[in-house]
């Protein structure tokens, strides 16, 4: 029984121990625990941020670590670093050791290999380390940026204050802009902008000018007609008389102007997105409406003054 028991226990211990030791040994081997290491000494005026176990990197690859920190006779900090023997070839007499303190992460010693033709670094030599403080460098780089940001902030504050102040420059500019916009609304140039076709604009302008001329002409004719009315009823009120012809002419004109009105409405729609242009077109529309209204009232006045009779009036003796 005991032979069997001892055999089982022995087998268990043997197999398990071999497995565990192999696993640990493998990790130790991969972690270079058994590798030969060389000890070098570096010196620094400050031991700040230096810790035992700190990595020594070459091109971002760990080749060793800080083994011990000591205070030297001259008051400097002596940093004993252990470098794997197979990486010792990268340490040359002109190599530079930089203590790098990154903004995020732990500090590390970075090796900058010198010329490979340079003699190998002796383990007895004491190399001075260079401190490259990422935080300070970053702060230095950031200083002018921060200063500019400060100025921008002050400017923004001034602008905001100006915006709030009703008598401020910005509000004044806005008022001026409003005035200017009103003025612009009255100019033809915006009509150009709204229509896009200079020919159409000239046509509209031409039509308006003609209407104006017609109105003037009509006024003049009415005056003449008034003078002539007394002279001959027949000549005026006859079928081919002057007044029926004039009425036909005026009705035609009203029709044309109505068409022009529609055209303006269309143009108005086209320019609906442009407020200032809409204002211009509105003005134009009003001009046309006024003209039509004037002509209509003229026709009415004609009708009132010279009634058109279908049956010739028979004058009794």
């Amino acid at each position: 029984m005991f032979r069997s028991l001892e055999y089982k226990v022995g087998l268990f211990i043997l197999i398990t121990s071999v497995l565990i030791v192999s696993a640990i040994g493998y990790v130790a081997y991969k972690k270079d625990v058994f590798s030969r290491v060389d000890t070098y000494t570096l010196a620094s005026f400050s031991g700040e941020d230096l810790t035992e176990g700190m990595p020594v990197l070459l091109s971002g690859y760990k080749i060793g670590r800080v083994h011990a920190l000591e205070l030297g006779d001259d008051g400097r900090i002596l940093i004993r670093i252990k470098i794997l023997h197979r990486h010792a070839k990268w340490l040359r007499r002109d190599s530079v050791f930089i203590i790098n303190k990154p903004l995020i992460g732990d500090p590390r010693i970075v090796l900058s290999t010198g010329k490979m033709s340079s003699p190998p670094l002796s383990t007895e030599a004491i190399k001075e380390v260079v401190v490259a403080n990422d935080i300070n460098t970053t702060i230095k780089k950031l200083e002018p940026v921060v200063e500019r940001l400060n100025r921008i902030t002050i400017n923004i504050e001034t602008l905001t204050a100006n915006l709030v102040d009703p008598k401020g420059n910005v509000n004044q500019i806005l008022r001026h802009t409003e005035t200017l916009a009103e003025r612009l609304a009255r100019t033809d140039s915006l009509l150009d902008l709204a229509l896009g076709n200079p020919d159409t604009v000239s046509a509209v302008q031409e039509a308006l000018k003609n209407t104006e001329e017609i109105t003037t002409e009509m006024t003049r004719i009415l005056k003449t007609v008034d003078a002539m009315a007394v002279k001959s009823d027949e000549a005026l009120y006859g079928k081919d008389g002057i007044f029926p012809s004039m009425r036909t002419l005026l009705v035609d004109l009203v029709g044309k102007l109505a068409k022009l009105d529609q055209f303006v409405i269309h143009v108005n729609n086209v320019g609906a997105n442009v407020d200032a242009s809409t204002k211009d077109l509105g003005v134009l529309r009003r001009d046309i409406d006024e003209t039509i209204s004037t002509i209509n009232s003229l026709v009415k006045e004609l009708d009132r003054k010279i009634p058109f009779r279908k049956e010739p009036r028979i004058k009794l003796p």
């Binding site: 005991f2 028991l5 001892e6 089982k8 226990v9 268990f12």
Partner: peptide, 16 residues
């Protein structure tokens, strides 16, 4: 030693 072996058997091997 005998007890150690016996205990190892009962604690570790038997439960394996």
């Amino acid at each position: 030693q005998l007890v150690i072996i016996t205990q190892l058997y009962f604690t570790a091997v038997q439960i394996l």
